[in-house]
């Protein structure tokens, strides 16, 4: 099994950016999507920011297939959100189809409403906007740069190492998961051949148990590897790899902030229009 959003080195503007600038993009994205965007009229706000993220994906020369993978991963959630909102949205009158009559007050939970579907789409778009920024960061930032960048933020060395080793453990878990699936298939236990109910009922014990046991063992080995190489020595480690914050980084960071301010301006204007 491949890790879907693994860092791949490429010589592009996005890859060369200071990790803190890319982290700024992630933070601004999160700040934007937690602001109240409750009507479909806010669509341009999300569209502007999503266009920025898609532009960065393109500048980073990341394969379209990766973006498709992202959408594929989220598709189930999108369908769920649209369906739930379609049937439960309380502020709509335009019924697309009525499946049954059941509900409370004026709301019929058996009727699929256009306004609900549109609101579900808006929520999905918010989720996509958020989800598009983090893989971009992970795929274009080496963990060496990330570690150096986090140290620049004066993050404690234990926390920095936790972030970086969590990334490396993610790769490890994917690899182990694939090995274990293969090992059990070889004994006639093939979860790919099972339906979802059988999988949930009995499939995961033979897969998860060896994974957990192996991870415990790995964690022990990891502790040995760390401590026998001086980790834990009181005081701050020497900063060996240095990242320079260039003028280009400053310009790009300013551009991100400008686009974010534009989005907020748009949001305020739209909200005022809505009264």
């Amino acid at each position: 099994m491949q890790v879907p959003f693994k860092y791949t080195y490429r010589d592009t503007l996005v890859h060369r950016l200071h990790p803190l600038v890319k982290l700024l993009h992630v933070l601004l994205t999160l700040l934007l999507i937690i602001t109240p965007l409750y009507s479909i009229r806010f669509l341009p706000v999300l569209a502007v920011w999503l266009a920025l993220s898609v532009g960065l994906w393109s500048l980073a020369r990341i394969e379209v297939s990766r973006f498709a993978t992202l959408i594929k991963l989220l598709l189930g959630t999108f369908v769920f959100l649209i369906t739930i909102q379609g049937f439960t949205y309380r502020f709509g009158d335009t019924v697309i189809v009525t499946l049954f009559q059941w509900g409370y007050g004026d709301t019929n939970l058996g009727a699929l409403k256009l306004e609900g579907v549109v609101f579900g789409l808006l929520l999905s778009l918010r989720m996509l906007t958020a989800a598009a920024s983090l893989p971009l960061f992970v795929m274009t930032t080496s963990s060496a740069d990330l570690m150096t960048g986090l140290r620049k933020l004066h993050m404690p060395k234990v926390a920095t190492l936790m972030v970086v080793s969590a990334l490396s453990f993610t790769t490890l878990i994917f690899e182990m998961w694939a090995f274990i699936l293969d090992a059990q298939k070889l004994r006639g236990f093939d979860i790919n051949q099972m339906n979802i109910i059988t999988r949930l009922r009995k499939a995961y014990v033979p897969i998860v148990t060896p994974l957990v046991l192996l991870l415990f063992r790995r964690a022990n080995d990891f502790q040995i590897a760390l401590e026998t190489r001086g980790f834990g020595t009181p005081g701050n480690p020497t900063e060996v790899e240095r990242l320079e914050f260039t003028v280009r980084d400053g310009v790009v960071a300013a551009f991100f902030v400008a686009v974010w301010v534009l989005c907020q301006y748009l949001r305020v204007q739209i909200a005022a229009g809505l009264g």
């Binding site: 060496a144 990330l146 080995d221 040995i224 005081g235 790899e241």
Partner: peptide, 29 residues
Amino acid sequence: MLQDPEVQLFNPNVFAEMAFGPANLQMPR
């Protein structure tokens, strides 16, 4: 140095891997 090279390497590149120990011991850069 232990048997399994996989468990001893956790840094993102060879340079960082080799720098990890002496940096923890606070050797000059």
